[in-house]
Design a protein around this nucleic acid. Structure first.
Lengths: 142, 142
DNA sequence: CCTTTTACTTATCATTTGATAACTAAATAC
DNA sequence: GTATTTAGTTATCAAATGATAAGTAAAAGG
């Protein structure tokens, strides 16, 4: 087994995980927001509170465009902007109550599909999957 | 360990694999094509020969838009369209010589970054990664 | 044959996204 | 205390993408 083979297997996994992600998340997004806005909300959900510059960097969206999309999300009452009391240039973004409800619904739908996907796996399989996830997370996707 | 925990771990892996994909593929795309066109070329590369309808379905692009993008790729001489001799409504799409060169370059850049990423892993780690990839591929990402 | 279905195309339009320049306001550096 | 840097905003524009309607041509079904 050389590294070239490992590379191919890894690409195959990345391809599969992309496909599965699509499968798990398709149509969970509310029609009220655009794909980019959903990505931003997803990021805020797992990282809040977060600053506009962090969103910009991690999602590879320019600051002007990040600002524009955050403004739209704010107008839709899905997020809240708070100004840092120490440094008043900085902002903290979090989900609003309404935004949390929306994202909870989306994540619940994803979880349901996931549970459906693994429902036929045996206890041993699930444990093996768990170990494999840990291993890849630490050794490959650090 | 309940399924809820496994779900969270799996989401974490999907998130990581998305991040790593970004890292491995950023800037490998030629400026001559758009992101969607690159995705299509990627799909053609691993699945050729492939029909427009397959591309449309697998990449979730409507047939009219798939047709438009394939036309553009064809005008850029990156792909070739062949009509099925049996059923003249059907087409087979493959990379042109030029398209292959472009995609080979892109894949080589990705491979280099990948090798760089695993260069410090021990032989045992690599074997463990290999087994984990196989396991996830068969048990989770089927 | 004639109708229907399939595979793909063309044209058009609205929306989303990306890129850039010019801006404000606050903090920091000198 | 003025200059510079940082964090974010506004405005504007072009390009990419998505959606829809209407079309062609070949094949399949009756």
């Amino acid at each position: 087994m050389d590294n070239k083979d490992l590379f191919n297997k890894c690409i195959a996994l990345l391809t599969s995980s992309h496909r599965v992600t699509q499968e798990l998340t398709q149509n969970v997004k509310s029609d009220a927001i655009t794909p980019v806005q959903y990505k931003i909300l997803e990021y805020i959900t797992v990282s809040q509170p977060v600053s506009p510059s962090e969103i910009s960097e991690c999602q590879s969206i320019s600051m002007p465009n990040t600002s524009r999309e955050l403004k739209k999300l704010s107008e839709k009452k899905l997020i809240e902007k708070l100004t840092d009391t120490e440094d008043r240039r900085k902002q903290y973004i979090r989900l609003s109550k309404e935004g949390e409800i929306m994202m909870n619904e989306a994540f619940a739908a994803v979880e349901l599909r996931f549970l459906n996907r693994i429902q036929h796996a045996s206890k041993e399989d699930l444990e093996a999957i768990d170990r494999a996830l840990d291993l890849l997370q630490t050794k490959l996707f650090y």
